[in-house]
Write a protein that binds this DNA or RNA. Structure first.
Lengths: 371, 371
DNA sequence: CAACCGGATCTAAGCGCATTGATTGAGGCG
DNA sequence: CGCCTCAATCAATGCGCTTAGATCCGGTTG
């Protein structure tokens, strides 16, 4: 690019000072109309686009919010096999057996969308970064340095870094706060309550009495869900496990775990999973072993991702108001831009039970008006 | 926030000059280890996070790419009815009749995802903005001022603005270039070719001879698709219409249009639509009028969005390599960051025919190995 | 006619960092 | 023991913009 024009160039071409050029754009009413026109014309001729960096520096705020998300590329390789396959050109024109939908609109993506929409709606720009625990430190600081407020997904940024950043700008974490209090704001959903309702449904409606909880308890959200699960069992006078059947984050573990249960003849009546992706992995594993879902074993998830309605059987789950979570995050940040030490909040949003096929419910079409 | 610390604060606490602080972070090898440690410790104590604006200003580049997208909120109201309904809390726990999936992972979202992944992969931050023709002018300039390269979706930014921005930073438009040459780079797909293949399939495999093309020709992409459609008809010695049955962008128009055809008894054997969303609207309209798809009329789309596999009947379409388009955009921008006047490119990517139910093809499960 | 006033414009001082060229000092060499 | 070299550090400048305060000027007011 041939050296982009600056206020100085515009000013000299228009025959005014740089201050006037700046005013012409930021406070047009302060500048006489004729001069303003001249300035705009000069800017047009030169192709002037003001530098965001310079503006941000001078004003002390950037007018942008940041969101730090997962980087899918950093996930274990086997998780993104479908993606790789997709890039294979010679497979063009094949039947659509790709399973990319299992990876794309995930929980984070829908939350992110809400964040975007709300930012745009309020005239803010949005800076997005991605990474995982390891990569993040530098990357997240990089982003934090360019925005007026930051939202992060759990497990993307070490708490220490979060604390440091929150001394500079407001920060909100999109998860249940960990038990030992948190240094930042939070947007949560009714994790425990939602899972309790779902479990109750399995017990009351379907009469299941032997349920397993599957999920890597890597976030406070999953933990809260496990507690909701346990609470429902206790309320029904069923034995509640001390710990869930942990699956770690490797999908293979789910396969091993289930084949163990199958071989030992101790398959439960239902698997209650901490998240939708885990539930989908469980369904896959069961299918591969010839175990029918839901007639032989029920499976449920938690999230409400798109893939849950695409797979067969469709997934019974608890839907989080993902888009709205993103919106709330923006709103929390905005409220805190001005006054520094507004108290931290934890805004909890309602969830919604979504009954589909995988729990044993048949498909109904309630949209048909009863005659 | 209590006034965030700067290099000056860190420098004085560590007892060095600001230059050394800067070096400690940017070129660690230039600083003796002991001093570096002292500096990092001081930075820790103060909670120092370098200002992106200042850095950007000083270095002359920001290390971020921009993407300018549609703002769904700016769409006609009736298009987002499902969204509104979703926010209604009292509807919690209802059966999942919401149709949000019709709006979310659309074409743009998947392209955007590719853009994000590629940026992160290369260690770049990403700034996203949204708007439509009207709102954009200022917003897009705002973003253009903060990034080193910009990608835009068609119809989001007036060409004049695009030209101006491209004098400052490299720009790539995610669409077929318009016939009269373009001032920016492009990432395209085989629009015409893909549509030709699809139409051929309808003619050859299903024997349809009376097809209508439906689509608002608001982008060069849609135009190219129409040309592909016409080409296939001509090749089969079928009469090709001069113009498509335009639907404008108001879904109601599709309803009117189809009810007209129905009332006059001139329903074709198939509707070939310019995009998936339009095809879904057509299917909806037909269903509402009691016309079965595909037994009575076939319908096809173009895009490959997720909703196409969720709806009944599932949508036959042409799938664009959306994620890859985003990736290519990043790659094009990056190649042009250094050398200013590298020639403009138009990188065309392959598409893929996806045969599902709505064209009359039955569901096959090719993954089953033949015995 | 002088003092005054308000609108339009300008001068000048940063904003926080990167970076060039200068400075310092310790070790190497003859 | 003096001179040179090189590594480590520093002083100073500029990046492009915003904005408080100064200035200028034509028009008012008494």
């Amino acid at each position: 690019m041939p050296k982009s024009p600056t206020v100085y160039d515009v000013a000299s071409l228009a025959g005014v000072s740089i201050a006037t050029v700046s005013f012409a754009f930021r406070q047009p009413e302060r500048v006489r109309e004729s001069t303003r026109d001249a300035i705009i014309r000069a800017a047009d001729v030169l192709g002037y686009v003001p530098s965001g960096s310079a503006r941000g520096l001078a004003r002390g705020r950037t007018g942008a919010l940041g969101l730090f998300s997962f980087d899918y590329l950093a996930e274990p390789a086997d998780r993104r096999k479908p993606l790789t396959a997709l890039n294979d050109d010679e497979e063009s024109l094949r039947f659509d057996l790709n399973e990319e939908f299992r990876l794309f609109p995930l929980y984070v993506d829908e939350v992110q969308r809400g964040f975007e929409l709300e930012c745009w709606h309020r005239g803010l720009a949005l800076m997005i970064g991605g990474g995982n625990r390891s990569s993040s430190e530098a990357v997240v600081a990089d982003i934090a340095g360019r925005v007026d407020g930051l939202a992060v997904f759990p497990r993307t940024v070490p708490e220490e870094t979060l604390r440091r950043i929150s001394r500079r700008i407001p920060v909100v974490e999109l998860s249940e706060p960990s038990q030992n209090g948190s240094v930042v704001n939070h947007v949560t959903v009714q994790n425990a309550e939602g899972m309790r309702l779902l479990t109750e449904h399995l017990i009351a409606t379907h009469g299941y009495r032997n349920l397993h909880f599957i999920g890597a308890l890597v976030t406070s959200d999953s933990e809260a869900r496990f507690e909701g699960f346990s609470a429902a069992l206790k309320a029904a006078n069923l034995p509640a496990p001390q710990r869930p059947t942990v699956s770690s984050e490797n999908p293979d573990h789910i396969v091993w775990l289930i084949s163990d249960l199958l071989n030992s003849g101790s398959l439960p009546q239902g698997f209650v999973c901490a998240t939708d992706p885990e539930a989908l992995d469980v369904i896959d594993a069961l299918s591969d072993m010839g175990v029918d879902v839901p007639s032989r074993v029920a499976v449920t998830g938690f999230d409400g991702i798109a893939a849950g309605r695409i797979v067969k059987p469709s997934l019974t789950t608890v839907r989080q108001p993902m888009e709205r979570m993103g919106r709330e995050a923006v709103s929390i940040l905005l409220e805190r831009l001005g006054d520094a030490d507004k108290p931290r909040v934890n805004r909890q949003l309602p969830v919604q039970l979504v009954l589909r096929e995988s729990c044993g419910c048949s498909i109904r079409r309630p949209s048909q008006a009863p005659a």
